[in-house]
Design a protein around this nucleic acid. Structure first.
Length: 523
DNA sequence: GGGAGCGTAAACAGAG
DNA sequence: TCTCTGTTTACGCTCC
């Protein structure tokens, strides 16, 4: 659903297509951008229609940009959730990085359950909402998908009056919210099913009620809630902007109205009201704000080659390791058991706008780790080396200079590849990682697509090489979309990949170099 | 033993 | 010229 929502936004941006800058010889900041104008100037120069389109675009860009950040929140939640699944005993009292304890999550879960139970009276008239999530807690889930399709009973526990075997006789033309393009779109699954019947069988076998499925549902709930919250905020901002500019109402939308009438995005409509008093906070931790589960990842102090991220990258985050020990690392001359790449990523993630200059990265290292307060030349060289070497670090030309950001999708993609290759990880870990990576990818794919669309138009041909194509390839679910000019307007408060010129690391390299490049991002 | 991943060192280039 | 930044290559170490 997230993917579709973002896709709609992207399509809208493409339709409105302003600013079709094609190519530049060098990456550079926006020139002659509308963002440099005051609202009054814009009103003078643009027709109301153009202004309207511009505002819409800006909102879309902002939304996409912030969705990108929320995606990082989801990652942390996912990691925690999956860790709980793997090690339920350990995590029963842990706090989510987002600030939600397990108990709170259960309350949310119950809240959703109760909310949907209240709708039970209307269930008979809505036969498409009959997914059961728990045998003891019959739940008519929020219609997680946005299409006007039918949901089918899952987990072999149908609430519908029709017998389960009857489900296999359903009209083959009927689609399912978890079935698209012949593939099961349950997060992380992507099993190919020839038809709906096969899909239903698959659903009942592979996605039956168990801890993992329940955890995945919880994660999805968090995702939806967060996005809904974000959407509401963005709508409010849009309204405020329009009010300020005294524009006629563009598209009066209630907070729960779908993104687009044609998109079928009805997540908020079918979800219980959010609890704004309990907002999710960004889980990306800073050393000064420990909130991760302590003791989950025992520190192997001083082990230079044995990095936590090597073994269980998604189950043992740097934050969870860093938080309980950050004072130790800050004061004691102990080398952190993480790779430079992992540390750099964490530094960037810790930044409020998820981007840092090289110097700021240096500062983070020295402030966070006493170890890096000496031998500056050595480790700084290593930092620069890693920034350049790994594709997951993206250099962005900012007005103030160059900043470094993290291509999270690339980071996770390569990381998951490494996990897949690792024989030490069990099947459960693999499946969990696959799930979390896939969901992560599905969240970010449209965002990246948006960024790429801008990239395509702004970046010099020589710089947009196969890295760009590789990204497009990774976002195969959206590759049918035309990558036309999206003219992402820059938020006055932050910058994003989508709105700034990038220096994309070239993959078209000679064999020797290519061999080196193959080792990228395997942290 | 060989490949992979990582750290370290260093050469080099461009920009300010 | 110097420093900083960024890229690239080479090599050693460790682990699997």
């Amino acid at each position: 659903m997230v993917l579709q929502a973002a896709k709609i936004l992207l399509q809208q941006q493409q339709k409105s297509g302003l600013n079709s800058a094609k190519s530049h010889t060098k990456p550079r900041p926006l020139q002659g951008s509308m963002t440099m104008m005051s609202p009054q100037q814009m009103q003078q120069l643009l027709s109301p229609g153009q202004l309207q389109a511009l505002l819409q675009q800006q909102q879309h860009a902002i939304l996409l940009q912030q969705l990108s950040r929320q995606q990082l929140v989801f990652q942390q939640i996912l990691q925690q959730e999956l860790f709980k699944v793997q090690r339920p005993g350990l995590a029963s009292h842990t706090l989510f990085p987002a600030g939600l304890s397990t108990i709170e999550l259960q309350q949310i879960w119950k809240e959703l359950t109760n909310s949907t139970m209240e709708d039970k009276s209307t269930k008979d008239s809505c036969p498409d909402r009959i997914i059961t999530l728990s045998p003891t807690e019959p739940v008519t889930t929020a219609k997680a998908s946005m299409s006007n399709t039918h949901n089918f009973p899952t987990n072999g526990q149908s609430l519908s009056s029709s017998p389960r075997e009857g489900l296999l006789d359903v009209d083959q033309t009927i689609t399912h919210s978890l079935y698209g393009y012949g593939v099961c779109i349950w997060p992380g699954c992507e099993t190919v099913c020839e038809n709906v019947s096969q899909f239903i069988k698959h659903l009942n076998i592979e996605h039956m009620l168990d801890e993992r499925s329940t955890a995945q549902c919880r994660v999805q709930m968090q995702v939806v809630r967060q996005l809904d919250l974000q959407l509401s905020k963005e709508r409010e901002r849009l309204q405020a902007m329009m009010a300020h500019l005294q524009l006629p109402t563009l598209q009066p939308q209630s907070p729960s109205k779908p993104l687009s009438s044609g998109s079928g995005v009805t997540m908020s409509k079918s979800l219980p009201p959010l609890s704004p008093q309990k907002p999710l906070t960004a889980p990306v931790t800073s050393p000064s704000s420990p909130r991760g589960p302590a003791g989950l990842c025992p520190t192997s102090v001083g082990t230079m080659r044995r990095h936590h991220s090597d073994k269980h990258p998604s189950l043992c985050s740097l934050s969870s390791e860093l938080n309980p020990n950050h004072e130790m690392y800050r004061n004691a001359d102990i080398r952190p058991p993480f790779t430079y790449a992992t540390l750099i990523r964490q530094a960037i993630m810790d930044a409020s706008d998820m981007q840092l200059t090289l110097n700021e990265i240096y500062s983070w290292f020295t402030q966070t780790f006493a170890y890096f307060r000496r031998n500056a030349a050595t480790w700084k060289n290593a930092v620069r080396h890693n920034l350049s070497l790994h594709k997951c670090f993206v250099r962005v030309e900012n007005v103030k200079g160059a900043v470094w950001t993290v291509d999270e999708m690339e980071y996770q993609r390569r990381r998951s590849q490494k996990i897949t290759r690792s024989p030490t990880l069990g099947k459960n870990h693999l499946s969990s990682l696959a799930y979390w990576t896939a969901l992560n990818t599905s969240l970010q794919a449209p965002l990246t697509e948006n960024a790429l669309a801008v990239l395509k138009n702004r970046s010099p041909a020589g710089l947009i090489g196969s890295s760009y194509l590789g990204l497009v390839h990774r976002t195969k679910s959206l590759k049918h979309l035309d990558l036309q000019d999206t003219n992402g307007q820059r938020s006055p408060h932050s910058t994003s990949l989508a709105q700034l010129p990038l220096v994309v690391k070239e993959e078209e390299t000679p064999p020797v170099i290519k061999n080196l490049k193959d080792k990228e991002c395997l942290m």
